[in-house]
Design a protein around this nucleic acid. Sequence first.
DNA 1: ACGAATTTGTCAATAGTTGCACAAATCGCA
DNA 2: TGCGATTTGTGCAACTATTGACAAATTCGT
Lengths: 207, 207
Amino acid sequence: MADKAVPDIVVGRLPIYLRALTYLKADNREITSSQELGDRLGISSAQIRKDLSHFGEFGKQGTGYDIAHLERNLKAILHVDRMWDVVLVGAGDLGHALAAYRGFAGRGFRIAAVFDKDPAKIGKPIGNDLVIEDVATLADRVREQGWQIAIIAVPADQAQLVANTLVQAGIRAILNYAPITLMCPSGVRVEQIDPAAHLQHLTYYLG
Amino acid sequence: MADKAVPDIVVGRLPIYLRALTYLKADNREITSSQELGDRLGISSAQIRKDLSHFGEFGKQGTGYDIAHLERNLKAILHVDRMWDVVLVGAGDLGHALAAYRGFAGRGFRIAAVFDKDPAKIGKPIGNDLVIEDVATLADRVREQGWQIAIIAVPADQAQLVANTLVQAGIRAILNYAPITLMCPSGVRVEQIDPAAHLQHLTYYLG
DNA sequence: ACGAATTTGTCAATAGTTGCACAAATCGCA
DNA sequence: TGCGATTTGTGCAACTATTGACAAATTCGT
């Protein structure tokens, strides 16, 4: 049963499956099952089988899934069987943390450039081998390099402006850390990370 | 129509509504409508009305919602009509960024303490008026202070261990930045933030 | 070689979520 | 005052997602 339009909620779980497979492989495991994956992820085995079945048949009855094989397939499905350049806007504390984060490389991403508007920061080194660039040059650089993915890590009151610039310059996917809902044209996908919102979700359940 | 067991997906949207209301209030607006909120958040007005209706009747037909009134009610529903102490474990780049983050205070949270296991970091200042403490003392400090919420910002291979310690010490809600699915007993709620997973979700849609 | 034990992929059933549409309430203005 | 324009809260219908159950395929031990 291959693709007719996979639900977004299913797509959102694939990176979690991929992550789990990578850990299993690092543990020198070769075979796993929907049961084992589900137990590790707190998801029912039926859901995992159903999710994967949207993309093909990856398992073997009686045996389970070949970890390396399924990992390779999930990477291809998510298009992370290649390296993506990501442009980071905002070189505050969060921007510095993201620029230095070691977790992106193994999962298909490389911070290609960092921009900020603070003249005191422009020209300063950041991360491992980057230099903070002037946000005034952002649009030109995005166009020139053909970057398609951006991370926004600027204050909330500047996020929409930055997003507009990025979209205008051709960015097609944005990971937004500013605590504001970005308005972007369809065709540009946005994912939002807001730690305070997550914490508030949690406190609902704390009497 | 007040509570019988509100769907978790509805609870997850409340912080977004609250965030939007706070911006409207900062803009000196007094009244809004489900239509306006929906337009700003990319959500249908019907969904906003239905979500809110789980908790009571906050609007006025023909007029809309009093922003300050609804904001107050949402804060009470989410239990952020008070300040919560949050314990942060991990003082790497991300830990430093979270300790310094100015966005928590206005939304009900205060980083109360930061722990790390690196002897070179213990005793060093972090954030505005905190000092990094030894993770060996984490359990005792959590019990002694009665902290209920924790943020985990340690490497993946130590996250489960830290989580176990926290749960043992009485923590009931965890925001986990480590790229691994934590196994916690029911009664402990976990939210996960994994930037690389979000980026992979996005790249699925980039041919 | 055979039977018991696994495990997949999928169909059908259940459960959950969203959107439509409208009565009822309110407002603003002539 | 009275009428048209708004806007809520909700019943219902449409849609989406999850789970249960099982035939078919495979493995493993005897």
